[in-house]
Design a protein around this nucleic acid. Structure first.
Lengths: 107, 107
DNA sequence: AGGATAATTAACTTATTAGTTAAGTACAAA
DNA sequence: TTTGTACTTAACTAATAAGTTAATTATCCT
C-alpha cells in the first residue's frame, strides 16, 4: 500500500524465487533465460519476478542483442542493511550485557 | 506460498506499520494498545500485524494481567542478517576494487 | 456477581500478488 | 523478407493480505 522504497525491497526479498535469482546473480550477470533455468514456472512469471527486483532497485538491466541481462545493483541492499543496523546494535548490546552478567556471577 | 522462515521474516518486515512497531519495541516492551497508539487503524488490524511479527519470530509475547506485552525477539533478525552477509561481502568487494582502482589512477 | 479494560476471533470486503496461456515486440541470422 | 530467439505485455484466475465491524474471551476491580 504505502510503497516506500524500503518496503519495496523487503517485499521483493520476501519471495524465495526472487532470493534464488539474486543468489544466482552473485556469480555474475545472467540473462532472463539463465535466471529462469532452475525453475519450473513459465517465462512470463519469471519476467514479473525480475521486474519486481528491478523496481525495488535490487538489480539493474542492460541490453545485449535480444537479451536483457540482469546484474546485482551494487548498493541495492544498502538501505536494508542501514535499517538493520539499529537492531544489530540491540543484539550486540544484549550479548554484551549477558557477557557482563556471566562475568559477574563467575567472580 | 513457500512460507519458509526467512521469507516469513522478510515479508513481515516489508510492511511499514510493522517496522514502526519494531522501532517502538526497541525502546522496550509495549502492550497492544501502546503499539496501536500511533496508528489510526482498528485494534483488530493491529492485532493481526502483531501476530504476523510473532509468527515470523521477530517478537515474543508475555502476559501481565489482561495485557499481552510484546518484546523484540533478541535474535529475531539474526537469520536475515546472516542471509545478507554474502551480499554485504559483495559490496565491500566492489568498494575495495573501486578503492584499488582509484589508488591506481592516482599513482 | 457484574461491569470495565485489554485484546482476540469471526465474518466479511477489497486490493494485491503469483501464477497461467496467448499474443506481441525486438533483434539476429539465413 | 522470412524465420527463429529472447523476452514482454495483456488478459485472466486463484490465493493471500490488509483492512473493516461485531461478537467473544480473559482478567481485573468493586
Amino acid at each position: 500500500m504505502n510503497a516506500d522504497r524500503l518496503s519495496l525491497k523487503l517485499q521483493a526479498l520476501g519471495d524465495p524465487t526472487r532470493r534464488a535469482m539474486l543468489a544466482r546473480l552473485r556469480q555474475g550477470e545472467a540473462t532472463v533465460n539463465e535466471l529462469a533455468a532452475p525453475f519450473t514456472m513459465s517465462l512470463p512469471a519469471i519476467s514479473k519476478h525480475i521486474k519486481v527486483l528491478e523496481t525495488a532497485g535490487l538489480i539493474t538491466r542492460s541490453r545485449a542483442a535480444q537479451q536483457r541481462p540482469c546484474q546485482l545493483s551494487p548498493d541495492g541492499l544498502r538501505e536494508v542493511d542501514d535499517w538493520m543496523r539499529a537492531y544489530r546494535d540491540i543484539w550486540e548490546d544484549r550479548l554484551n550485557r549477558l557477557e557482563t552478567y556471566l562475568q559477574t556471577i563467575k567472580e
